[in-house]
Nucleic acid binder design. Structure first.
Lengths: 137, 137
DNA sequence: TTGGTTGCAAACAATTTGCATAAAT
DNA sequence: ATTTATGCAAATTGTTTGCAACCAA
């Protein structure tokens, strides 16, 4: 039995074709750091012959988010994008011209964040860093 | 003549009542780290007896953004929030228990961000960093 | 006067929801 | 058989636009 099914069961969701397909779609882009919108997922599924509704894609992605399976980002693009949640943390760089999303991780920044919080008597629970960038000419 | 009028003139915008009121509204919240949505601005203006349209608020805020008077953020919730642009940049630290917002600025992080972008062939247009924190005990 | 500006209503885009049908357990 | 999920269409939310009336220069 494919591992997707286990993930779904653990999340308390019935194992249905749309959910499996959507999960696979996200997994297939996990390595390329490609961030898909609901519309993207919908189009790609239809292109590969699946008969799903856009509403279902939205519903399922939201359920996945609630279950902690995916993370939803609301970058400055006007629509949400989704990525499979992974345990290794990273930040994002958004190319405002192409809407491409790159991931990065920087020790120095991570360390400074903790130092800054500590200086104010706080500890960091979570953080969110996005760089909006443009190709240098 | 109030200074708002000069700002508007410089931006090539006629000095009208809605524009003055909206600008004042933003100025009144400039010291607190409060970010207002278009709807917020609209409601507050109506509450203080002004007869403006929501569409006007959107239009004026967009004009202010184009003129560089305000900055529009599209984070978290899916609706935009606006703040007067100030020349001194800062990031935010949110106390998740009290919901308090602190502002901070860190040279080291700023510098690293530019280096990271440059390493990938990009230049930074904007960035967004929020630390979610809790009081250390 | 006259061209920019407004408020309203209608148009839009992204996302959500109601409901009758269909599929999973 | 029962419960949950689906697809569709209609509803909602946040935002933009067309237009006739209006106001600052």
């Amino acid at each position: 039995m494919p591992s997707e099914n286990v993930e779904l069961r653990k999340a308390g969701l019935k194992v249905t074709l749309p959910r499996i397909k959507i999960l696979q779609m996200l997994e297939s882009t996990a390595d390329t750091a490609e961030h898909l919108s609901a519309e993207d997922v919908y189009q790609r599924l239809r292109d590969s012959g699946e008969d799903v509704g856009l509403a279902t894609v939205y519903r399922v992605l939201t359920q996945f988010e609630t279950a902690g399976l995916v993370v939803r980002h609301n970058f400055e693009t006007g629509h949400s994008v989704f990525e499979l949640s992974s345990d290794d943390h990273h930040d994002h760089m958004v190319d405002v011209e192409s809407n491409e999303v790159l991931e990065f991780f920087d020790e120095i920044i991570e360390k400074r964040q903790h130092e800054i919080a500590a200086e104010h008597g706080y500890e960091i629970i979570d953080h969110y860093l996005v760089l909006y960038v443009r190709k240098k000419d």
